[in-house]
């Protein structure tokens, strides 16, 4: 058994893939964001609060959150048949649960906030990228929120814990094989809102995995924060150019 485990792309075990985040990518949505972990790209749009139909789902005490996650058919190497699947329904639901504790829809009774998450390109960790994008999109939509939500997958390759697995790493089969452990946390708090695991992990390691994710959340949070602030402070087009034509 080798002591030093080498990741496929040569990065450190606690190193995330390069992240990309941008807010306001869908003009017609009330809020939108795109978030990428390396080759995994998720785009999220938020619509609402708006009147909820069917009426029997309306809650007079609070607004509700409705999440729809799906892979686009070209996001994976074998074309994904469009439309909801068992997997996408499950991920929609866990994403909803991951985001709900961070937001407050009490001011908007009988309404719904619709969140659509689509994966443009999948290379493992799509639900975590989706949660990160959706949390930024919710903030952009001006939904009252306590905090942003950060999410990352911690995995195990043979015996070592690694953060933010790629698809290739997820399919690792030597030794104990690969484990995929998706975690989401409400930023600036200790509340975990998503814990989902595929594979095997020793109970002692769970704590280490969560700790490892918590460290990564700091980095993810900074990326999300920067994207939101840049939306106003440093929009894509050059400021100087616009300033000239600004007055009158």
């Amino acid at each position: 058994m080798t002591k030093e485990f080498k990741r496929i792309d040569g990065i450190k075990n606690n190193e995330l893939r390069p992240m990309m985040a941008k807010v306001g990518v869908i003009p017609n949505a009330d809020g939108s964001a795109i978030f990428a972990f390396g080759n995994t790209i998720a785009i999220a749009a938020v619509y609402g609060p708006k009147q909820l139909h069917p009426q029997h789902m309306q809650n007079p005490a609070t607004g509700i959150l409705r999440v729809n996650y799906d892979l686009l058919s070209f996001s994976v190497s074998d074309r994904k048949k469009p439309g909801p699947s068992r997997r996408s329904q499950e991920i929609s639901k866990v994403t909803e649960w991951a985001l709900l504790p961070a937001i407050n829809l009490k001011e908007f009774p009988n309404t719904v906030v619709d969140v659509s998450i689509y994966i443009l390109q999948a290379d493992a960790g799509t639900r975590t990228a989706g949660i990160n994008a959706a949390s930024m999109a919710l903030a952009h939509a001006g939904i009252p929120m306590r905090y942003l939500v950060c999410s990352v997958a911690v995995g195990k390759q043979d015996k070592s814990l690694v953060v933010d697995l790629t698809k290739e790493e997820e399919d690792f089969e030597e030794g104990e094989g690969a484990t995929d452990f998706a975690i989401a946390k409400i930023a600036n708090s200790d509340e975990l809102t998503l814990l989902q695991m595929d594979g095997k992990i020793a109970p002692e390691l769970v704590n280490d995995a969560v700790k490892m994710a918590t460290e990564s959340f700091k980095e993810i949070y900074e990326v999300q924060k920067k994207a939101l602030k840049d939306f106003i402070e440093a929009p894509a087009d050059s400021l100087d150019k616009k300033k000239k034509g600004a007055k009158k």
């Binding site: 009330d30 809020g31 619509y47 609402g48 609060p49 952009h140 939509a141 001006g142």
Partner: peptide, 8 residues
């Protein structure tokens, strides 16, 4: 002050 989002 809101800078984005739906009309309330």
């Amino acid at each position: 002050i809101p800078i984005s989002g739906a009309f309330v």
